[in-house]
Design a protein around this nucleic acid. Structure first.
Lengths: 237, 237
DNA sequence: ATGCAGGTAATTGTATACAATTTAACGCCA
DNA sequence: TGGCGTTAAATTGTATACAATTACCTGCAT
């Protein structure tokens, strides 16, 4: 779709392990909220869905559990993670702790072409916001996360990039559970402000804006009230 | 052995999955440097060693690869990770980025009893330094990492704690590969200084000392290689 | 000797089979 | 009707079997 967005996607090597493809597919489904927190992911079902054996399905679920997107309970199976309010707070606390540092690193290394890519990501995000329909909503969710991921990528630290991928994905889960307003309508302009600050090398302001941005997202959460799902999901956890 | 040290150890639930036990055992072996970077970890060998099937051995190796301690190459097998100089730099960059923030969080929440536990960890560390022999060296390595892990634990953020566990473990690998002097003889006093600053609520100094401490460890690195034990020798005895 | 070709052994990738545990379903009885 | 124990079905935990890929060794030609 978009070259700058594609640059972020997983290598998508054709030599990819079978389990990894399944993991990526399920992760996308979780991040884009086609799978709700608490949903049971049985090994047989996953295997049948992707026409592979339970072995690979299990490996994929195991991998997702290491990312915190799936929780596996011994002898009970795997479920889409249902982060508690405490977990939600810790996820955002981690982001507040980490993203300013990533931003600083990124500011040091960013090139003009990367700045252009960031802006391109932004217009794509805006385009999706104006579009209507479920697919656009899903793409918007992903694009909004891609902004933060791209910054991590620019920082040049693969380890922090991986960590941010985990945090962004888990954030999506938290927002799905506790978010009140529609997703990131406010976030979009804030992303732009951060890019502006980056462009004029005003790192301190950029960090400040980033912290404000994260606080803004967090402020939209209502950690007291849980969104209601089906009766069954409400009690099987 | 030591109550404050034990408080850090994995829950050690008796309901632990078989694969997890194996993962923990291998991780310990890697962190304590009984297994050298680059050592091949074949699924059959690991399985035989722990008297389980390849299924569990494979799961354990897979888990370790998510932590960055083992690298699995498609159709070639698993090896104890051999971090490149670039990776080594990124690991320590991540620690510089993250540990001051963790320290700040910890400073806000630390209780007198936790301070006492930190000190206790320190004397244990000192005791091990004065002891001689391989087992003491290994315990010393672990104790030195436990200081940082305990701080992460005090910070109260499970996600950051997990991340620090990964970073500390991978640091051990880097030091095994590129470290010149014997481990953390200098680190010990620096740990003490940080605790002192924490005790008088001097957070800024504590963070400064932490950054200095990490830089100190990094300064001891050189780009050379070392030799290895085999898998079997690492576990027998 | 060196380099290459072929084939064999060893190792990983995936599927299937069986055991252990949990979940639910049924029937019994108060 | 409602609670409870037993049993059957479904699901996960682990081991084994087979397929695919790689690594190694041998032998031949140059």
């Amino acid at each position: 779709m978009n070259s700058s967005a594609d640059a972020l996607q997983a290598p998508s090597d054709s030599t990819e392990n079978g389990a990894q493809q399944i993991r990526d597919a399920i992760r996308d489904a979780i991040v884009e909220r086609r799978l709700s927190p608490g949903t049971k992911l049985s090994e047989s079902d996953v295997g049948n869905l992707f026409n592979v054996s339970r072995t690979l399905a299990r490996a994929a679920l195991q991998a997702l559990s290491y990312e915190g997107l799936v929780s596996v309970e011994k002898n009970r199976g795997a479920f889409v993670a249902y982060p508690s309010p405490e977990e939600a707070g810790q996820i955002f606390a981690a982001r507040r702790l980490v993203e300013p540092g990533i931003l600083r690193s990124a500011a040091e290394r960013i090139t003009p072409v990367q700045l252009r890519q960031l802006r391109q990501l932004l217009v794509e995000e805006g385009r999706l916001m104006s579009e209507r329909g479920q697919p656009a909503r899903r793409a918007e969710i992903k694009a909004s996360g891609d902004f933060h991921l791209m910054l991590a990528s620019i920082s040049g630290n693969l380890i922090m990039q991986r960590f941010m991928e985990e945090l962004v994905a888990r954030s999506s889960l938290v927002i799905a559970l506790y978010g009140q307003s529609s997703v990131s309508s406010c976030g979009h302009s804030e992303h732009g402000d951060i890019i502006d600050a980056l462009e004029r090398k005003d790192v301190e302001t950029a960090c400040h804006l980033m912290l404000h941005h994260i606080a803004h997202i967090e402020a939209d959460l209502d950690l007291r009230e849980r969104k209601s799902f089906g009766l069954r999901e409400a009690f099987e956890r």
